[in-house]
Measured scan of single mutants.
Amino acid sequence: ILEEAISVVMSGKMSVSKAQSIYGIPHSTLEYKVKERLGTLK
């Protein structure tokens, strides 16, 4: 489920907030994982 949510957000089909409510994943977790994948994590 997490992988799917990350893919959807990264493809631009859904915002982090929308994915959070649909997949039930905490906003901070989703945002962290997306940034980690994009290489923008500081």
Rank of each mutant, 00 (worst) to 15 (best):
S28K: 12
E31Q: 07
V8S: 11
Q20T: 13
E3H: 02
S11Y: 04
T40Y: 07
R37A: 09
G39N: 09
S17I: 15
S17A: 15
H27G: 13
S21Q: 14
S11N: 09
L38I: 06
V16I: 12
G12H: 07
A5R: 01
L41I: 11
Y32F: 10
I6Q: 02
L30W: 01
S7V: 06
E4H: 00
A5G: 03
Q20V: 12
G24H: 08
I1W: 08
L38H: 11
I6Y: 09
E31G: 05
V34G: 05
I1K: 15
G39E: 13
K18E: 15
K33G: 12
E31C: 10
P26H: 09
K42Q: 14
L41W: 10
A5H: 00
I1S: 14
V16E: 07
M10K: 06
S7D: 10
P26V: 00
L2M: 12
K42V: 14
M10W: 01
G24D: 11
P26D: 12
L41V: 14
M14T: 06
P26Q: 08
T40V: 11
G12N: 14
G12V: 00
G12F: 00
G12Y: 05
L41F: 11
S15I: 00
L38E: 15
G24C: 07
I1R: 14
A19C: 06
L38C: 11
S11H: 10
E36M: 04
S28M: 08
V9P: 01
K13T: 09
S11R: 07
Y32N: 14
G24F: 01
K33C: 13
V8P: 00
V34K: 04
I6C: 02
V16P: 09
I6W: 00
H27M: 14
E36H: 03
I6K: 05
L30S: 04
V34F: 02
P26S: 11
G39T: 11
E36A: 07
K42N: 15
I22G: 05
P26R: 06
V9Y: 01
K42S: 14
E4L: 06
S11M: 10
Q20M: 07
L41T: 14
V9Q: 00
S28F: 02
A5L: 02
L41S: 13
M14S: 05
S11G: 07
S17T: 12
H27C: 13
Y23K: 02
L41H: 10
V8N: 09
L2E: 10
G24Y: 01
K33P: 04
Y23D: 08
S17Y: 12
S11P: 01
H27D: 10
S28P: 10
E3V: 01
K35T: 09
V16K: 08
P26E: 12
G24N: 10
V8A: 15
T29Q: 12
H27Q: 14
I1E: 13
T29V: 14
H27R: 14
S11Q: 15
K33W: 07
E4Q: 06
K18T: 12
K18P: 01
Y23E: 07
S17Q: 13
I22V: 14
I6S: 04
R37K: 10
K33T: 10
P26W: 00
Y23T: 06
K13Y: 06
K42D: 15
M10T: 10
V9I: 13
L41C: 10
V8D: 10
G24W: 00
Q20N: 09
T40G: 13
V34C: 10
K18G: 07
L38G: 13
E36S: 06
Y32W: 11
K33F: 13
L2Q: 06
K13P: 01
L30K: 03
T40E: 15
L38P: 05
E31M: 07
V16S: 10
T29Y: 09
G12S: 02
G12M: 01
S17H: 15
T40S: 13
S21P: 04
A5W: 00
L30E: 05
K42W: 08
Q20I: 06
G39R: 10
V9K: 01
S15W: 00
S7R: 12
Y23V: 03
L38A: 14
T29C: 06
L41R: 12
M10F: 00
I22D: 09
E3K: 08
I25F: 03
S21T: 11
K18N: 10
M10H: 02
L41D: 14
K33Q: 11
T40A: 15
S28C: 09
K35R: 11
L38M: 13
V16Y: 11
S11L: 08
S28Y: 09
